[in-house]
Design a protein around this nucleic acid. Sequence first.
RNA 1: GAUCCCAUAGCUCAGUUGGAUAGAGCGACGGUUUCCUAAACCGUAGGCCGCAGGUUCGAUUCCUGCUGGGAUCACCA
Length: 623
Amino acid sequence: MRRVLGITHKRPGSIQPPGFPSGFGRSTRGGACAAHPREYIPPPMADVHNPFARAAAEAVAAATGVPASELTVTAPPRPELGDFAVGCFPAARAAGQPPPAIAARVAAAFQPTALLASATATGPFVNFKVDRAAAFRWVVDATLGDGASLVPRVTDRTVCIDYSSPNISKHLAYHHIRSTVIGHALAQLHRELGWRVVGINHLGDWGTTHGMVIAALQKWPPEGPLDVTTLNALYVRYREAIKEDPSLADEARAWFKKLEDGDPQARALWEKQREVSWAEFAQVYDELGIRFDEIRGESAYEADMPGVIEMLQAKGLTSISEGALVVEIPGEKTPLLLKTKDGTTLYATRDLAAAQYRWNTYHFDRSLYVVDRGQGLHFKQLFKVLEMAGFDWATRCEHVPFGLVRLGGKKTSTRAGAGAGKQDVVLLREVFREAQAGIRDRLRESNTDLSDDAVDAIARTVGVGAVVFANLAPQRDRDFDFEWDKVLSTEGDSGPYLQYSHARCASILRKSGTSVVLDDATRAALARLGHDAEWAVAKRVLDFGDTVARSAASCEPHILAHYLLDLAGDFSRWYTAGNGDASLRVLCEDAETRRGRLALTAAVRTALARGLALLGLGAPDVM
RNA sequence: GAUCCCAUAGCUCAGUUGGAUAGAGCGACGGUUUCCUAAACCGUAGGCCGCAGGUUCGAUUCCUGCUGGGAUCACCA
């Protein structure tokens, strides 16, 4: 199922003169689907991974007769009230009694279990306290064991994720990062949960745009090696030239037509564009640690166009509207366009083909399109047409929309790439370079014993981490205002803060001079743990699995991002408690306590590292 | 005009199918380092959760309307 990373070389399909250019300054992708609003549906209590939370619900269920699936477990507003709270509202409704009375009865009948130590009624809630020793054991086993039990796993499920999907002959600019980073996080999250994941880069490599670049290459042959900057400049210049001499548009069309017809010269130039573009994209993807399972551009579907159209025609779905071949959609004002009045296929047609290809190839349970919200209507209609065509799997297709990236309050992704001045676009590689430079300086100051290579390596990891995290922390739907200070921030709620917390864990473990081993002695030492700051850390780790599941199910990486901030904060509070009191340090005098604390530190380190990896961030051992 | 998204502290944002005293970060002010890395931690100040109705025992959360901001609305992708 996995494909080797590389460009799938594509034979131009048939005919169709190209549509009118434009759109070059825009990612092929971007959009939201209002027709299929995928709301996150929490799992029934029986599927909650945290065994302590589940036990709390089951205890109330057993005492009241209300099924656990109807109960919700939450965290009490203040930790001293308890660890997990179950509201007695459903039981009260069923019994016709006030919730506090039910809560009191449940608490009175409670008998301690292996997982739960006590139950207290507070108003309508039953607040459970966990058996801390059992919880510490669970946390350490789940994180330091084989890793299987930290998160809930599914089997035999497949998800296709279309993300990043830039246009060739153009730089990866900052506005591409959201799709790239969100898509990658969703891929990682699903992998963690046991899904088969097909990460797809649906390159924008087809259309008259590319005919324009070919024409420009003919007209103004560049000197020296070709790169994306040159290609983009040629494109911009050509577009400008068309304004003066409209016949150049026909020339570009003619070149695209040649490309479609398999003309060797056109094809060679087009392939060169792809090659040069991919070389640059690959550098950025490498920097981000992203590998796609399938790199299959729009050109790959050109040969499927006639079949798609025939299929829709055979089902009687097509009609001619204003000269264009369309599918009218009940309840929609505008139809889905399959072909222009000139006979050119459109991207909707290619998306229909791509959707079918993905189904036929992977039989996915979910097919995600991580595309900006502006494309909402397109996907809504696309999925609707698939449904109208009788594909019941259409309901498995989901739009994963995200907000715009703005620069100084302005939209940065430009439809008319020609008019975009340099100041309107922030290049991704420039952002990374800037981020890494600042961090490199910082490291040289604070870690003078590090080699230059080590400094460079850490600066890369932390610099990228800052940028990636800044994009993942806000929920997808919100627009994103690009601000250098914020994106490059290494303090407070930031990627570097998480990485720093991880480095502190690593540092403490390093200084212990021992390695944490998951054995009986370690488990026994956990009995020494328990003060509030320590307990807060362990309790947080209990939620790791359910958080990952929720984040993946709702396609919201920010849920995990905020969880990790909480975890890092809990850990920071814990270890700084040792600043004023040596007996509270991990590396304290008492050997048994020390052993237990080291195990918890190792658990946090593992949870942070795994969480960071899921978001696409590295976890350095030194900062 | 139609549709969609958003509105929570000065700023940027969280808030787990409706529940207990709405939380972080930044900024401001004040503290913490002979001590496992101060990229950290603690404290103080700061809120009509846009407005008005509705459903409910209970609404920041769900529904309707309104205001304000953004996006989309066919032969571009």
